[in-house]
């Protein structure tokens, strides 16, 4: 009998975390730039936010070799869409296309939990989130990656205003449309907190703000330990 060795095609190399918030006329995609394997920092400067064309941003969140291949797929799909149809790909169509890209690998999945961010044709900010094999939905906010279990409850509380009432009226607090400034503060505070408590998150925070005019990226320092 030959000695059988199994090769594990998946590894634990990945970025830290990403977070997305949809506003009335903007959308935010933010992520830290630490890339780690096990207890080692591979790079302090590996962006998780990828511009795939047509004003759309993607963060793949997961095993980084699959993440790269996945982003390449999405990028190529948009290029081919342009060749075939000679028009911009709407974000809802891109989301459906990503669903097919992921489900195509149903029995050898890309180990990713992607977030797609952009502006809908009606001008509203949009966030779409996916599971590794293509289940997806449009949401007001989403966090993924290593610190998702720290970030999601924070977003539920601060963006969705879950389980909170107005003390005057006793009525549940409505999920009001966040203004950009508040949303940016929430993102910075969320990552500052995640970097305090999650060892894979840190180094730099990249925040991309998408509007109908395109996107802009800003960077802020995080903990480096």
């Amino acid at each position: 009998m030959p000695i059988e060795h199994s090769f594990n095609p998946y590894g634990d190399s990945s970025g830290g975390s990403t977070l997305a918030i949809a506003g009335k006329d903007f959308a935010i995609l933010a992520g830290d730039t630490r890339h780690s394997t096990g207890y080692s920092i591979d790079s302090r400067n590996e962006s998780q936010i990828h511009s795939v064309g047509d004003g759309l941003l993607v963060s793949p969140n997961g095993f980084s070799a699959d993440a790269r291949a996945f982003v390449d797929d999405v990028h190529n799909d948009i290029i081919w869409y342009h060749h075939k149809h000679n028009k911009k790909l709407a974000i809802s169509s891109c989301a459906r296309s990503i669903m097919h890209t992921l489900y195509r690998r149903r029995f050898f999945p890309y180990y990713v939990s992607p977030i797609l961010v952009g502006i809908e044709p009606d001008g509203t900010g949009a966030v779409y989130s996916f599971d590794p094999v293509g289940s997806y939905e449009r949401e007001a906010s989403r966090a993924a990656g290593h610190a998702s279990e720290l970030l999601v409850p924070f977003l539920d509380n601060q963006v969705r205003k879950a389980n909170q009432v107005d003390p005057e009226t006793g009525k549940p607090l409505a999920q009001h449309d966040l203004d950009l400034e508040t949303a940016l503060q929430l993102v910075k505070d969320a990552f500052a907190g995640a970097a305090e408590r999650r060892i894979q998150v840190g180094d730099w925070l990249e925040i991309a703000v998408v509007t109908k005019d395109g996107h802009k990226v800003e960077r802020y320092p995080l903990r480096r330990d």
Partner: peptide
Amino acid sequence: AYVDLLGVTYQSGCLATGFGNY
């Protein structure tokens, strides 16, 4: 830039493979 048997890649001002990482 770095690449390994899994297809993992990253870039940095300084890089190492194997024990060099530690």
